[in-house]
Amino acid sequence: MSISVFAPASIGNVSVGFDVLGLSVKPIDGTLLGDVVSIVQADKDSLSVIGEFSNKLPGNVKDNIVWHCLTLFNKAMAQAGHNTVKLALTLDKRMPVGSGLGSSACSVVAALEGLNQFYQQFNNTGFNQKKMLLMMGEMEAQISGSLHYDNVAPCYLGGMQLMVPDANIISRDLPQFDDCFYVMAYPGISVSTKAAREVLPAHYNRADLITFGQNLATFVDACHRNDKAQAFSVLTDVVAEKYRQHLLPKFIEAKQYLVSQGCLAVGISGSGPTLFCVVDDEAKANKFAKWLKINYLQTETDGKNYGFVHVCKVDNQGACVIENDT
């Protein structure tokens, strides 16, 4: 048997919720913006890496996070008393590394959910949602250096997820605004999560802490009351943006333009360099997407442009099986 699982891109932080808020997104044109992991039973464990951004990953597959996911999953299966078999995994790396779109989370979620779905069908074993999230968080922490679920949770569960300080719950689903469009512009350069975290201050002043708490609380309240105007009026980043924006060429100018043109909100997706802007009109979304293609995408040092712009909606499904051959 074989199975393929797709894991979608996500906006980490969503400006107002540093490390505690994440939103899963999908392009309205049907593009699979995320990673795919395919799994088939084999004579030995193996990993192949394909896809547009595969050349940005370690050459040794045993250094790949998907291989580490296989190791972790097999260990968890053994601890639970479940049998495993040898598997051949293929990672279709469709997400740029260091994009701020949850690239590592996509690989982690697609791999672990693919393994779980495989074994559920193969021998009726596997793990529940809570155990899966814990493993996904553990893998993500390996890469970024700290445990946070703001990419893996929405990537796995879909929708907008609020991380809560309860290991038995981990994440709560927040209501979203279904008429909103999220224009995602990846300029074609990479920013490592580790580097983006290192520019942040070790301590914050009291005024910023008060503003952060007030804005996040107001945003969550507005989501539950379906008050779009209130929600996006506080969608600002007082924790990271002012320290990270210098890492993102053209971000300041792009944000100024988009805000002046009536966007509901503009921010950095995760640690960047992807910019996202929010509108509630499809024509405006397409207009801003065209502007960003011209004014925000950049050329890498190898002379190529790896950037893209997608008009997206909220992805309420999260990780899903896209091919299943039993």
Rank of each mutant, 00 (worst) to 15 (best):
N305Q: 12
E140T: 08
L23D: 01
A111G: 04
D302M: 08
G270S: 04
F181L: 05
A167P: 06
M77R: 10
D166L: 10
I170L: 15
K130Y: 09
G59C: 09
A76M: 11
S144T: 14
L258M: 11
T274R: 02
A285H: 07
V279K: 00
R225Y: 09
K313S: 15
I50C: 11
N316T: 12
S38T: 13
Y243N: 07
G158W: 00
I39M: 04
T90N: 15
A231M: 05
K194L: 12
S269P: 07
P175V: 04
S146E: 12
V66W: 00
G262L: 07
V97C: 07
Q41H: 11
W291M: 06
K284V: 01
Q214V: 10
Y306A: 06
Q117H: 12
Q261E: 15
D178N: 13
S38F: 05
V36L: 04
H224Q: 12
E323S: 14
E52Q: 13
V311N: 02
L21F: 11
S2Y: 11
P154D: 05
G262V: 05
I28A: 08
K44W: 03
A231L: 03
F122H: 15
G159T: 02
V199C: 14
Q245S: 13
D166R: 11
D173W: 07
Q317R: 10
Y119H: 04
G114Y: 02
A289H: 05
A240H: 11
V279A: 03
S48Q: 13
G22H: 05
R197N: 14
F232G: 00
M77P: 01
N124I: 00
H203K: 14
I169R: 10
T125S: 14
G307H: 06
L134Y: 03
G213W: 06
D150M: 05
D227S: 12
R94A: 12
G51K: 07
